[in-house]
Design a protein around this nucleic acid. Structure first.
Lengths: 215, 215
DNA sequence: TTTGTTTCGAGAAGTGCTTCTCGATATTTT
DNA sequence: AAAATATCGAGAAGCACTTCTCGAAACAAA
């Protein structure tokens, strides 16, 4: 039995930030960087940066820090962003279309090979270069293409149903943009990316800021 | 000096989940609900639900729980989602267009009154019913309309610059979708809503799931 | 009315992430 | 070659969020 403990979510959320910064630094010709510099740039604690980097199993050198090239590779590897992870997307509305059009996902290892919708006007077209199929074909196509990632950009009332179709097709990781609570077996990974949650944080922080300034 | 402590972020992220569920329950004709039921439905701990609800200053009754109607109002009020918060959006690309088209934001108190872009083909058009202006007009319009919320959907290299223009126009709360680290005065609230962070969590959880199943 | 059940809310305990402290080490300076 | 400096990595301490425990309160049933 593996006793390796899971990575803390806060750490996972910081890794892409390190990655973006490291890519910028590499662009600028740097080859080494210390936790001190990374921390200052991202307004974090240097110790935290070191602890985070520990998870990638990269070790630094006193006085100089970390090798940027190696660190970039290690983070990508750690997140499996160096692989071509095939994905399906269901719900070709505004958000779904935007997602398909965001070409950079390939940089993050995510490759949309098929999209699905129930709207007959959309079926059999291509959106942003990705073919749109009728929803009922999802399990079949997902199975044949061995797709493990599914992106849910459907209205909340269909989210559960579509998620189950994805699972039927062998999908193991679901990126859920619908404000719905999915009930799925626990060998399926779900990440809820709901904008309303993020907006709640922003809204309340703003309210609290105003209350503080009103004093 | 106000000693009221700020709301924990995890709590803020759960509030919209309660809200969605409560709206569904109200739809179904219910008027009261207990922390036990809310917790089961969202797979949380009942105590946590009670602690979260405490922040909204709603008090429940033993044996029956909380009044749904009051709780809905209290959450909306707490997040200032019952107000008409005017917002600008900068960067009318795929994501920006999707955001403008997501009509539901009004439900969350957010009302887009103007969008901005530098692309002359987009300027002076309307996208999803929202007028698009040239970027240089941002401070002027934001000031005149007294806009406090700004949504950033521009490429990362312009994010800092545009954020500063927003602040010049009096914007106090910035919802940043660009993968860039904004450096702004601390009387400005920033919420980073970067998809890559969410994807990192999903990707790694999937990797860890596979490692566990491989045993 | 009394007994039983369910839930709230307050405080204590527990857990997990963050921050501090410090010895060891690589590099630069004298 | 020795001294000074910057940084890493390990463990301790601190802090914040979550979960547990229990008395009080509301309601239902006997």
């Amino acid at each position: 039995m593996s006793t390796k403990k899971n990575t803390p979510e806060p750490t996972l959320r910081r890794l892409p930030r390190y990655l973006h910064l490291l890519l910028r630094l590499r662009e600028g010709g740097m080859t080494e960087v210390s936790s001190t510099v990374l921390a200052k740039e991202l307004t974090l604690d240097p110790t935290q940066v070191r602890k985070d980097i520990e998870y990638t199993e990269i070790i630094g050198k006193p006085k100089t820090g970390y090798n940027i090239e190696k660190l970039i590779s290690a983070i990508k590897d750690f997140l499996s962003w160096d692989n071509n992870n095939k994905a399906v997307l269901v719900g070709v509305g505004h958000l779904g279309t935007a997602m398909l059009g965001y070409g950079n996902f390939k940089t993050y290892g995510l490759n949309f090979v098929a999209a699905f919708d129930t709207n007959p006007d959309k079926v059999a077209t291509e959106v942003q270069g990705v073919p749109v199929h009728s929803l009922h074909k999802l399990p079949e196509i997902a199975k044949k293409e061995e797709i493990k990632y599914g992106v849910l950009t459907v209205p909340p009332q269909y989210a559960q149903f579509v998620a189950e179709m994805m699972i039927e097709g062998g999908v193991k990781a679901i990126w859920n943009f619908a404000p719905a609570q999915l009930k799925l077996p626990d060998n399926i990974v779900v990440e809820n990316a709901q904008l309303t949650q993020s907006l709640a944080v922003l809204s309340r922080k703003y309210v609290e800021l105003m209350e503080r300034e009103d004093i």
